[in-house]
Nucleic acid binder design. Structure first.
Lengths: 152, 152
DNA sequence: TTGAATAATTAGTTTCGCTAACTAAATTGT
DNA sequence: ACAATTTAGTTAGCGAAACTAATTATTCAA
């Protein structure tokens, strides 16, 4: 495995890049996966919560779609978040089937604190990179996000 | 997000980038997990197998380290791979505590096929990007890999 | 030679995601 | 208007993945 982070326009075959990106993502998440005992908030919870904090209230279905999980999975995530007082559910009066979910103030605080804590190990390592490398990673994150959804 | 790696030093705060990278990785892997269920080999298995195929035989402990999981986790992965005939275990004659693991021929074939299947959805989407965007992602993958391990 | 260290395994727990089947509410078609 | 269909969400249950703690087997060192 030779390093081609700085190679001059390599033959960037989509499949090879896909494979590396896949592999890199697995290893990155394993680094961050460990449970956050202090806050008790796991990565998927934090992720859903941050959608609510930054994107405002959503229906359960919208949240499931945003997080790319099935509705039953999101039902469970929301139930746990509610039990911890981090989100609130309300019924939509126009359509009583839908469940509206929004972050509580505590949810907002916990999300911000938990995120900082969870991401600290990574941020620490990023701080050691050159600034152009960090910029590259930021651009890449946006691209990956776009690719993971349907390139919208 | 039109700027590249050579953008004029944006305020690339490490923590913000860490958060986005984290989020992007979660979503990317969720996308790929679904595709993967169509085949018999799961992502962690494939990942470990590819270490063996590309890196040659390893001890169980080395494999655990390479994959950033604990030894018990790797024990289970290897047991499953062995049950499927994809790897073989052998005792090291110099030190009878260690378990040497190597991919079988079938393991090699299955790994390559599985990887192609797994990565197809991603590669398809990558193919729609500009070539400089793909190159950026490739460089990012290498960087992420470096960061996820201890920046060596 | 006995005791500490190392490699791997076993046992048990937790979290997460899925599918299938269900309830409840809204919409549609006759 | 009311039966049939569609839509939103929930419940129940399965399987995969990862962890910690404790155990076994082997090696190394005092």
């Amino acid at each position: 495995m030779t390093n081609d982070a700085d190679a001059p326009t390599p033959p960037a075959d989509a499949e090879r890049v896909a494979d590396r990106l896949h592999s890199a993502s697995i290893h990155l998440l394993r680094l961050l996966r460990r449970r956050d005992d202090e806050g008790g908030v796991t990565a998927p919870h934090l992720s859903a919560l941050s959608v609510l904090v930054f994107g405002g209230a959503k229906t359960l279905g919208e949240l499931a779609a945003a997080e790319q999980v099935t509705p039953p999975s999101m039902t469970r995530i929301v139930r746990n978040l509610e039990a911890d007082g981090l989100v609130e559910r309300g019924t939509d009066f126009a359509d009583r089937r839908v469940v509206r979910v929004r972050a509580t103030e505590e949810g907002r605080r916990v999300m911000l604190a938990g995120r900082a804590r969870r991401v600290a190990a990574l941020a620490e390592r990023l701080a050691k990179l050159e600034s152009d490398e960090v910029a590259l990673l930021e651009a890449a994150a946006a691209l990956i996000e776009r690719v993971a959804r349907g390139n919208p």
